[in-house]
């Protein structure tokens, strides 16, 4: 190869290498797109009523579950999320888990709560029927979650099951990482007493759910 040809070849190789590098630099990685999406979201909302901009700041569970949305969740990641959330559950000081199922039914029916259009002074509902079948009298129920009809009757009216139901409603991520279900106690949507009332709707033998 003549020196001039070799030089031209070297220049061509260098140019191609530079083009590849530039090409790589202009295609952002998945993590970069995620970070930019979070930043663009923050700039695209304004606070309204009770919904402030801090609702766009993700906690570790939200961030991790967003990342793995639509993909298989690795076992170790799922275990970490469940462990962290389980550790944060505030169990009732009096050790009692069963409230009033009639109050629980009202909470399960109530769809208002935490939207910027809702009155923050009115206690929030859990809107269980939006996603679950519960009492068979209610025909207007959703299907995002499984049916909970005969929840207690099928599983047994045991102390362990009452505690599990309380924990699940308080923080569902403790039992099923990246579930669609909100963490009603953990995120301050429901009070401890409201959670107990919904537990009673599921676990009281007199509740229509168990008829």
């Amino acid at each position: 190869m003549a020196p001039s040809t070799a030089l031209a070849f070297a220049v061509a190789v260098a140019a191609a290498a530079a083009a590849i590098l530039v090409g790589c630099a202009t295609v952002p990685s998945d993590a970069e797109v995620s970070a930019k999406a979070a930043a663009v979201l923050k700039a695209s909302f304004r606070e309204q009523g009770q919904a402030k901009l801090d609702r766009l700041t993700q906690d570790d569970t939200q961030k991790t579950c967003s990342e793995y949305s639509g993909k298989a969740l690795p076992k170790d990641v799922a275990e970490r999320i469940e462990k962290e959330n389980l550790a944060s559950i505030q169990w009732p000081a009096d050790g009692k888990y069963l409230g009033d199922w009639k109050a629980g039914e009202r909470i399960a029916q109530e769809g208002r709560g935490m939207q910027y259009s809702d009155d923050p002074k009115v206690p929030a509902g859990a809107n269980c029927y939006a996603c679950h079948q519960l009492a068979p009298q209610e025909l207007s129920y959703g299907t995002i979650g499984p049916t909970l009809y005969q929840f207690g009757k099928v599983r047994g009216y045991t102390a362990e099951m009452r505690k599990y139901a309380y924990g699940k409603i308080w923080n569902a991520e403790a039992y099923n990482a990246c579930t669609n279900m909100p963490r009603f106690g953990h995120r301050g949507i429901l009070t401890s007493q409201q959670v107990k009332d919904v537990v009673a709707l599921l676990m009281d033998p007199d509740s229509p759910v168990n008829k």
Partner: peptide, 20 residues
Amino acid sequence: RLGEKMFYFRGGTHDFACAT
């Protein structure tokens, strides 16, 4: 690509994303 990420972005009091 940004819109796709936003579709799966979980946040707020209820951890909801569009995908939920």
